[in-house]
Amino acid sequence: MKKSSIRNKRRITVFDSVNNTVLLLIAVVCIYPFLYILFIACSDGTFLTRGQVDFFPKGFNIESFKYVLTNPKFDIFTGMKNSFIYTLFGTLIAVVFTYITAYALSRPRLKQRYVIMTLFVITWVFEAGIIPQYIVYSKLGFIDNIWVMIVPGAINTQFLLITKAFLDGLPAELEEAAFIDGGTDFQTLTKVFLPISKPILATIGLFNAVSIWNQYLVPQMFLKSDNLKTIQQILKSVVITSGNSGTVFTNVMRNGFTLNQNNMKAAAIFIAMTPIACIYPFVQKYFKKGILIGSVKG
């Protein structure tokens, strides 16, 4: 302890200051684009069309946010609400299913566990591709069905492997002790294993939540109704393709500021990433821990 504190007290060299500055710059570069979007959203449209907005907003106003949020054609609220629901339930179910499956597969009593695990791995490595997936899922009734965001992806083989590795790593005596006390599987699972599995649960929960929230292809293939669309789909149609919907993007004047499609798009992008930006500071430390648990076994 003492020795390391000596190390830390060492004077700051040129290398240190250069290194610190460069890395801080990298960090700023990482988030600058997000700020840039904010500046665009807050600028007056006339300056944007002329390409006069670089590092700071010009003609500052927040009309674009008001417009995008109040115009029902943008459907930002629906998208956010849907994405939130899918993420919440999807994560919940994914964590429960992955955990109980991993628990069962990590019991030496289960003789078929190698077969089952191999089957999981085979289907993971050998991809069927989106067309058969689409056809089979559609026959299972997943078209325009919100469960498509929740159920089929609940057991991700990679997360299953990580969870199973974690449970395999726990001492066998834990289970033996519980069984000697006359416990059943359910009791052992809830009383003995669950309390010490919090880190792995947090990990797979976070991984799942991020992947469900960010998914684009699955909802795009299966969720067709406007009222089921996720925020990512709405971003794609509003910002990237912007399609044939000329009515949405015609210039409007609001309180003396010109809003054109660039402001509106930027506002939509910024709103779409706000929730993640808000929770990020609170979950990032769990996330870091999570990656480590996952990486113990490679």
């Binding site: 069309t49 393709t241 919907s245 000329g246 993007f249 015609t250």
Partner: peptide, 9 residues
């Protein structure tokens, strides 16, 4: 160039 782009221009 989307329809919106063209209209703005």
């Amino acid at each position: 160039n989307s329809e919106g782009d063209w209209e703005s221009q």
